[in-house]
Design a protein around this nucleic acid. Structure first.
Lengths: 228, 228
DNA sequence: TACTATTTTTAGTAGATTAAAAAATTAATT
DNA sequence: AATTAATTTTTTAATCTACTAAAAATAGTA
């Protein structure tokens, strides 16, 4: 009767996550970009795109990639909610460092029940952001997007607060942690070197600020919010 | 080079668990008995038995089933340790009722990392029994078996303590919970009716005992320890 | 128009599973 | 004991799913 996808296999939910993440950053969601991120062949992604289109999760324009439909976005939200709730739980309740939560959550998210999710949610006090500052969608699939901009877009002398880190690479996160660059940390831009050169920033609250140098590559993935 | 099984797929670890559980109860581990418990065909189990034999986990006598080698027992212990640690964690930390922990642990046990296991272990204070009274093997695969006997083997008038419940059926556990029959609960046998009839028992410590009637079928799976 | 990139299609591989056939075991009957 | 019947297990051949390499189609570009 129903030809569409019923249960979300790990591959399917991973693919949904990738599509959503790319779309969120305003990138074109092409076959090759997704295949590279998932570590599978292009052919596999083409087939996934077709299945997703049949399920009504994406609009698929052959040779031009996909973009999520409202239904697909809801599906993606379910997956991302599981993932981010788990990340926060691992960090808070089990003492995981923030650079390790992603990999563990990636495995757990495929098997936890709705009941498990609800218990986590309650235990964490119905949180709205994960350890990287990424918003946790509500049960209904609503995200409270906090407006921000890349650290690289700040003007010299400006102050702001770290909102989120859009990178899940363990080593990079580990390094940023050493610099003290966690969500909710105050930062100020001292100097931006030309030609995509490194930034000089002040990290921490005014009483114990520390000057740090940060490559533009990394800074691009640090989202900050300016005070009104 | 190495033909033997490297990573434990869910099917493989589930099969190991079933073999161990049957062997622990002194039952013959036959193809059909295992296939029924796993919900797969006999042919599948025959193939699994062969793989296990090649890996050195079981002695396989064709047409006569398998029994675990010391190596196989160690492998089974790893799987069971994961499972029982998770069960206890779900009950203690997330407030799961004891009749629900089994199903959730069954899914989680296949994906958790060694680091996750260690964090659970430490957080729970290096426990030795799970919510059903089943022993949690140590990291080295050692189980501290507490001697006991089925409730049905008690003599009338005798007192004892519930040691473990050898049943993972959610509904049965739920019912036993209503009767107050948890591990460490004192019980006394008042009367055993003939021909496998129901037992009359006293449940709870002497100040607030309650008389209950219990079918022999259920009582067979309740293991108690007699005082010295 | 021709060349390069990317994407899709096609045909086929590999792993897990099973239905059905064949073999072995067990139990019953003579 | 020998024979038959019933049961269980194993083998075989085939299916189904997820995946990919290579070929074909399409899009973008000089």
């Amino acid at each position: 009767m129903d030809e569409s996808i019923q249960e979300l296999s790990p591959r399917i939910s991973d693919c949904l996550k990738v599509i959503y993440a790319m779309q969120e950053r305003g990138q074109k969601v092409s076959t090759s970009a997704v295949s590279e991120r998932l570590g599978v062949s292009d052919a596999t992604v083409t087939l996934l795109f077709k299945d997703f289109a049949v399920a009504g999760w994406v609009e698929h324009t052959p040779y031009h990639g996909v973009h999520l439909t409202p239904l697909g976005e809801r599906k993606a939200m379910e997956v991302i909610r599981h993932h981010r709730l788990l990340e926060l739980y691992l960090a808070r309740a089990l003492g995981y460092s923030w650079d390790k939560v992603h990999a563990e959550a990636d495995k757990l998210e495929h098997v936890i029940s709705e009941e498990f999710e609800e218990k986590l949610d309650a235990l964490l006090g119905y949180p709205t952001v994960d350890p990287h500052g990424d918003p946790i969608p509500s049960k209904e699939g609503v995200v409270s997007l906090r407006k921000g901009q890349a650290l690289t877009a700040m003007t010299e002398g400006q102050s702001a607060t770290v909102l989120r880190i859009q990178d899940q690479d363990s080593e990079k996160l580990c390094y940023l942690g050493e610099l003290g660059l966690y969500p909710d940390t105050p930062v100020a831009l001292v100097k931006r070197n030309p030609f995509g050169g490194p930034l000089v920033i002040l990290v921490g609250s005014t009483d114990k600020q520390k000057e740090q140098i940060l490559g533009a590559e990394l800074a691009e993935h640090i989202i900050v919010s300016l005070p009104e």
